[in-house]
Amino acid sequence: GIPATNLSRVAGLEKQLAIELKVKQGAENMIQTYSNGSTKDRKLLLTAQQMLQDSKTKIDIIRMQLRRALQ
């Protein structure tokens, strides 16, 4: 079985993952909103794209940590 310490770690990672998935969803929504907007929305679009990139990276890292914890 999986050690108890790993189980609480997994629960924490799953919570983090859920949050990051919401951030990713929000960033994707912002990108959709701003991509057909005016030029003043360009900065917001770039910010949203950066957020999305960061979020995807975090999600990958969390998933990797989850896999390790579940081994």
Rank of each mutant, 00 (worst) to 15 (best):
D54A: 14
I2N: 13
L7A: 15
M64L: 13
K40N: 07
I61E: 10
K56L: 12
Q32E: 07
Q32K: 13
S35N: 10
Q71E: 09
L45C: 05
A11W: 04
T39R: 05
L44C: 12
R67L: 11
T33G: 08
D54H: 05
A27V: 13
P3H: 12
I31L: 05
E20W: 15
Q25W: 08
I62N: 00
S38Y: 07
E20F: 12
M30P: 00
Q71Y: 05
K24N: 02
Q49D: 02
A48M: 05
R63Y: 15
A48H: 02
E20D: 01
L13I: 02
G1L: 10
A48I: 04
V10K: 04
L46S: 04
T57P: 01
M64R: 13
Q65G: 02
Y34M: 04
M51Q: 06
T5L: 11
A4N: 14
L66G: 00
T5Y: 11
L17V: 01
L66V: 02
L46F: 06
Q53V: 11
E20G: 01
Q49K: 06
K22S: 06
N36D: 07
L46V: 10
I59L: 05
D41M: 03
Q71G: 08
L17T: 00
S38M: 08
Q32N: 08
Q53C: 08
G1Y: 05
R42L: 08
A69M: 08
G12I: 15
A11K: 12
R9W: 15
L46P: 02
D41W: 02
S55F: 01
V10A: 03
S8F: 07
Q53Y: 08
K24S: 08
R42F: 07
Q50T: 08
D41K: 02
Q16I: 10
Q50C: 11
I31C: 05
K40G: 11
R42G: 11
Q53P: 00
L7Y: 06
E14F: 15
L52F: 05
I2C: 15
L45K: 02
G12N: 13
G1P: 06
E14Q: 15
K22H: 06
I2M: 13
V23F: 10
A4R: 05
Q32R: 11
Q16T: 03
V10R: 06
S38C: 11
N6G: 12
A11F: 05
K24G: 01
Q65R: 06
I31W: 02
Q50V: 05
K22Y: 04
L44D: 03
I31E: 01
G37Y: 02
N36G: 09
Q16Y: 04
T33N: 08
P3I: 06
T39G: 07
N29F: 09
A69N: 04
V23C: 09
K22W: 05
T47I: 13
L13D: 00
G1W: 10
N29H: 12
A11M: 06
M51D: 05
R63M: 14
S55D: 00
R42M: 13
S38N: 08
L13H: 01
S55A: 12
T47C: 15
